[in-house]
């Protein structure tokens, strides 16, 4: 999918572990892993809101668009 979630970069910049984020935002580890590994098909506004609140960023900071990425690569 050409849309990528840059959660791993955001976590690295803030020296935060996935477990820590999981505890703070109340999203299960399994769902955060799906987001982090790029398997997610869609993100709810409520999820984006919780992530942005905890990471202190904008929704655009969590997403990137890579035109060259294969559309079915993550499927």
């Amino acid at each position: 999918m050409p849309i990528r979630v840059t959660l791993d970069r955001m976590l690295l910049e803030r020296r935060m572990s996935l477990t820590e984020l999981c505890d703070r935002v109340g999203i299960t580890m399994a769902n955060l892993s799906i987001l982090k590994t790029g398997k997610a098909k869609a993100v709810r506004f409520s999820t984006l809101e919780a992530l942005c609140k905890e990471l202190g960023c904008q929704p655009g900071d969590l997403l990137s668009f890579d035109e060259d990425e294969d559309d079915d690569a993550a499927d």
Binding site: I27, N31, L35, K39, A40, K41, A42, V43, R44
Partner: peptide, 8 residues
């Protein structure tokens, strides 16, 4: 269903 499953 797959899409819903991977909607976070």
């Amino acid at each position: 269903r797959q899409e819903q499953k991977y909607t976070i």
